[in-house]
Amino acid sequence: MRPLRLAGAWVLEPTVFHDERGTFHEWYRADELRDAVGHDLSLAQASCSTSRRGVLRGVHFADVPPGQAKYLTCVSGSILDVVVDVRVGSPTFGRWESVRLDGDTRCALFLAEGLGHAFMALTDDATMVYLCSTGHAPEREHSVHPLDPDLAIDWPGEMVPQLSPRDAGAPSLADARRSGLLPQYAECIAHGRRQR
C-alpha cells in the first residue's frame, strides 16, 4: 500500500493475475493494511452501491469518535474517487486528492476516520464495495457540498453531475466549519492512536 498526500489515506495497487479463465487478485489483506496504517480495520458493515455515469456522491464523513474508516474498491465500471481533508487543524485541511478506481486495475483505497469521501461514476453501472469500521448511523454522518468552489475539486468536465437531494443541499466547507460539523484533526489523531 502506498500513502496518498493526505495523512490517513492509502491506495492499494494489487497484482492482477490474468489467464484464459479471467482474473484473480487480493483486494484486501488485513496484514498489509495493518502494516500500512498501524492497526486492524474493525469490520462492522459491508456495503455495495451502483451508480450511473455522472452520478456524484459525497463529500461524506462521520463524527469522530467513533468516525467511520472505509476500505473500498470499484469492482465494475470506473469512478473518480476523491479524498477530502475536512479535519479542522490538519496541515492539509481543505485539500483533496483523487484516484481513479476501476474494474481493470482493481485498485483499492483506505480512508481513516475523519476524512471526507466522494466519487463520480465515469461509466454506467459503476459498482463500489465498501468495508466500514462502523455501521450506518445517520445522526453521526454529515456532508460537504462536492461542488463547493472553495474546494475546487477537479471533477470531469464532460459530465453534468447528478447529486442526491442530500448532497445538493449540503453546506460548503466554510459553513460546515462554522456550524461545528467538521471533525477536529487532534481528535482524529488521538482516535487513531487509541486503536493501536
Rank of each mutant, 00 (worst) to 15 (best):
A137C: 06
L131D: 00
P171L: 12
S143L: 15
R178C: 06
L147C: 12
T134P: 00
P171W: 04
A118I: 09
A170S: 13
P138C: 04
S143Y: 06
C107K: 15
S164C: 04
V160R: 12
A126L: 12
R177G: 06
P156C: 08
Q162C: 04
S179N: 13
W155A: 07
S172K: 13
L173V: 05
C132K: 04
T134I: 00
M120S: 07
S143V: 10
D148R: 01
L182Q: 08
I153C: 01
D175T: 14
R177K: 14
R140C: 00
T134Q: 15
Y130R: 00
L115P: 01
A137E: 12
D175W: 04
R177D: 02
V144Q: 04
E141I: 03
P156V: 00
W155V: 03
P161F: 01
A112W: 08
D124M: 06
G157Y: 05
R106E: 07
L111V: 09
D175S: 14
L181P: 01
L122E: 15
S172N: 10
M159I: 13
S143D: 07
R106C: 14
V144A: 02
Q184F: 00
P149Q: 07
E158V: 11
G114N: 13
A112M: 04
R140W: 02
L151K: 01
T127A: 13
G180M: 08
R140V: 00
D125R: 11
E141H: 09
